[in-house]
Design a protein around this nucleic acid. Structure first.
Lengths: 152, 152
DNA sequence: TATTGTTATACTCTATAACTATA
DNA sequence: TATAGTTATAGAGTATAACAATA
């Protein structure tokens, strides 16, 4: 006989995973229509309306590891959307920024993506948003504590 | 000047993504210690304590598309954890099931994984669980409606 | 004709670690 | 020594479509 696993947190995991998968599926379908992969869109969206940033900053914001980021940026450079510029202050560092073409694409697709995503929240009001954020934040804090306790 | 994007749902997206990423990072770190990739663990966990199921069912439950699933199962078969058996009723279909080795591994690592995950919920009580589930379910329903409206 | 699963293609991402060049 | 980023490896997952066997 299998042990009954009546863990009260299992429904939370199920719901979190399902909700996130629904969100991703809805978002990614639109991103792919735009001719980008999700990580490429992530980078583009992070660089939009900024003067650019180093690989390190970009890596921290997108949670893409530096090795992977090199490849993602390579493909965006190939598409002419992103540029790499040597930095004068610290010559180890590289400034990653949108090209004019990249900024133009961003200006076009980012609002379109927002409009697409707006539909996913059409059934909810601002009070719902507040409650959802509050509950998710509580959960995230709890996970964060566990991660700290696992490290040291 | 960039258009100000004061979309009230953006904080929800940010919080959902961050919370999910924290959850995944915490869960995957443990799964990889067990020598499995996340999709492989997903398949193993789905097959555990079942008599097995077809590729189609497995694909539906794990949300791994059938083409990808073939490769994931190949690697689990190579590890001796999963078997493929021809079905008599419908000879197009294949029964995917845990081998004895696979079931033994499942019996060993699934409780260990639950114990690991329990830590991530240590700061919360059953009322928190209910509230989080309720809010996530509301959000998921709204996303689901948008997906339906996009299709037809 | 429709369905189940495999194969084929071509990428894209991932983890990891070694390496280069600065600092 | 430490840091920023690239390169090198070796997988593994992804989307997509064509395909074989069966229903």
């Amino acid at each position: 006989m299998p042990t009954a696993t009546r863990e009260p947190f299992l429904p939370v995991i199920r719901e979190l995973v399902r909700t996130y998968q629904a969100f991703e599926s809805f978002s990614n379908a639109h991103v792919r229509e735009l001719g980008l992969t999700p990580p490429q869109f992530d980078v583009l969206a992070t660089l939009g309306n900024t003067p650019g940033m180093s690989c390190k900053e970009l890596s921290e914001q997108t949670l893409i590891t530096k090795g992977t980021l090199t490849g993602v940026i390579d493909r965006l450079v190939d598409k002419g959307l992103v540029s790499r510029t040597a930095q004068e202050e610290d010559r180890r560092s590289v400034l990653i920024a949108l090209t004019d073409t990249g900024q133009a694409l961003f200006d076009q697709i980012f609002p379109a993506h927002l409009a697409h995503m707006r539909q996913a929240f059409a059934g909810l009001d601002n009070d719902d948003f507040s409650r959802i954020c509050a509950e998710l934040a509580k959960l995230r804090r709890s996970i964060g504590l566990a991660m700290e306790n696992c490290k040291p």
